[in-house]
């Protein structure tokens, strides 16, 4: 009995020493995962995930606190990428998250705008130009379509316009005439 205890104790001491040494020698700091997750997120900063922006959501995912299917602007493809990165199963949208919508940009009806700057304060990416008592304008190229400016507007002059397909942003479609869908 005693010899058994001694043997196990000896093993434990040796292993403990090795691991202790390794813990010092191979110490790692920080979590590079957050940045990797953040790189996949679409950076709309829309808060539809219930976190106050993309980075906080990424942090929450990395900490295992948030599901990967909470980002509607990223679409299913975004979920797939997150699933691949984290080595977890794909999870479809569902529950309390909204389904993805067509990409759009905000548009301010300048005839109605009273220049209150509330939308400017709400815009997470500084995509609205203007000053107090002056008309505001959306810089369309920088608008992420997060809709955060729509609600604060006291005169409802902001609408979301779906980005139309033009020759400049047109994409080739997936060939549909494969065998399974033939006439």
């Amino acid at each position: 009995m005693l010899s058994a205890l001694l043997v196990m104790a000896a093993i434990a001491i040796v292993l403990g020493a090795v691991l202790g040494f390794a813990a010092i020698k191979f110490r790692t700091e920080g979590n590079p995962l957050v940045d990797k997750i953040d790189a996949i997120l679409p950076q709309t900063q829309c808060g539809q995930c219930s976190y106050p922006g993309c980075k906080p959501y990424a942090t929450a995912i990395a900490a295992g606190e948030a599901d990967i299917n909470r980002c509607p602007p990223g679409g299913e493809e975004g979920i797939q990428k997150l699933a691949d990165l984290l080595g977890v199963e794909f999870k479809p949208f569902g529950g309390d998250t909204a389904a993805p919508k067509a990409k759009s940009v905000a548009f301010i009806d300048e005839a109605i705008c009273i220049g209150c700057t509330l939308c400017i304060q709400a815009c997470p990416v500084d995509a609205i130009a203007g000053a107090a008592k002056q008309m505001h304008t959306i810089i369309a190229a920088e608008c992420t379509g997060c809709e955060l400016c729509v609600a604060p507007c006291p005169v409802d002059c902001i609408s979301m316009l779906v980005i139309e397909e033009k020759i400049t942003n047109w994409k080739w479609k997936y060939p549909v005439y494969s065998l399974t869908t033939k006439k």
Partner: peptide
């Protein structure tokens, strides 16, 4: 004690490996 001590030793080696991998290749670790 064979099985028991083997498990302990393996656990120790795995822990060691884990630390090495985490340090040397964070991507692989992930």
């Amino acid at each position: 004690l064979t099985t028991l001590s083997f498990i302990v030793v393996i656990a120790g080696i795995v822990q060691f490996t884990e630390m090495v991998v985490q340090k040397t290749s964070p991507v692989l670790y992930q």
